[in-house]
Simulated assay, not measured.
Amino acid sequence: MKATVLGAAGYVGGELLRLALGHPELDVVQATSRRHAGRPVGLVHPHLRHHAGLLFTEPDTLEPVDVLFSALPRGELARVHDRITSAARTVVDLGPDFRDPEGPGGAHYVTGLPELYRSALAGATRISVPGCMATAAAVAIRPLAAAGLTRDDAVVDARTGSSGAGAEPSPATHHPERQHAMRIYKATGHRHEREIARLCGVRARMTVTAVPLVRGVQVVAHLRPPRPVARAEVWSAFRDAYADEPFVRLVAHRSGLHRLPDPQFLCGGNFVDLGFDVDDDGLRVVVVAALDNLVKGAAGGAVQSLNVAQGFEERTGLEFPGLHPV
């Protein structure tokens, strides 16, 4: 399949290029960037220097392709949507423009989260990948909500690394301000709350903290079951939901150094690690989910969704497991 990456100069765009260039079914023919047009992609993404023949191109003239991945900022894809869809048979959007099925154009897009929407993704030609923190929270909460093991609101405490803010610097992402920060930048009313509620069927109350990492998201969800529950019942709910999922790993050990999910071991990988614990009285379940925000939370989720939509083996191009130590 011929592929274009739109908005290829950003961090997510770089991950899309890395994954697509290593995918046996994809042939990247265009990587767009207005600012870097004419320059080799390796000058912006140094880990791709060995692809010396691939140059950034202007986004105004798009080649006809089989699939177009869009890593454009909020509002940009919606503005040029008609032109994009005329150039590509399949569009995979990693931005927020079409995530809401009740929003403009959103009804035409399938949610790009195979763990929850695999059947809907089969044959899909319009795919919208959820936000990275929403992905982690949805994987953590939905099985328990579906099993009736939570009531009231889900309290979601999310931590995110600096790459989630994108490649364009700002005062908040300036290194002297960000290096050692644990900055709570959205204590209430985060925009992902509505997205998590739609994906999980329960209301989410979310707080987001910027932590001193480059990559990584960790979500800690506090759930109140309607009755006392045991660990075995929670294990069963997660196993029923994810036993056959290639990119969900259950990590909930009672001893050892790495007892619950930690995003540091997921850098570059498409896995989401999922763990939990239960209060002694069985009246609170704490679920922990971790992922690489640029891969499973963005580019990897997009490639995984395309694999499902096209009938490719789901792991294709996504086998890298992450690193330890980092």
Rank of each mutant, 00 (worst) to 15 (best):
P24G: 08
D152W: 01
G275Q: 03
P24A: 13
R178F: 04
D153Q: 04
V303G: 00
A187C: 07
Y242E: 01
F276M: 14
P228E: 15
A8H: 04
A138M: 07
F276Q: 03
Q310P: 03
T125C: 08
F271I: 06
R224T: 15
E177F: 10
F98C: 06
A232W: 05
L274C: 09
Y242R: 02
L323I: 14
V110F: 06
L116A: 02
G164V: 11
E193R: 11
A134P: 13
V278E: 01
V92A: 02
A243V: 07
E25A: 12
A78M: 00
A165Y: 15
L48V: 15
L306F: 02
D153G: 05
T188P: 03
D262R: 05
R231H: 14
V139M: 06
E63V: 10
A8I: 08
L113I: 11
G103F: 07
D281L: 13
V251W: 07
L68M: 12
R315C: 02
L144I: 13
D280L: 00
G22R: 14
E314W: 12
A140W: 09
D153W: 08
P325A: 11
A122E: 15
R34I: 02
Y109R: 06
T135Q: 00
V326Y: 12
L116C: 09
H222E: 05
A197F: 04
I127S: 06
T85R: 15
S33R: 01
P176G: 04
H258A: 11
G95N: 04
I84P: 01
L213S: 02
G161I: 03
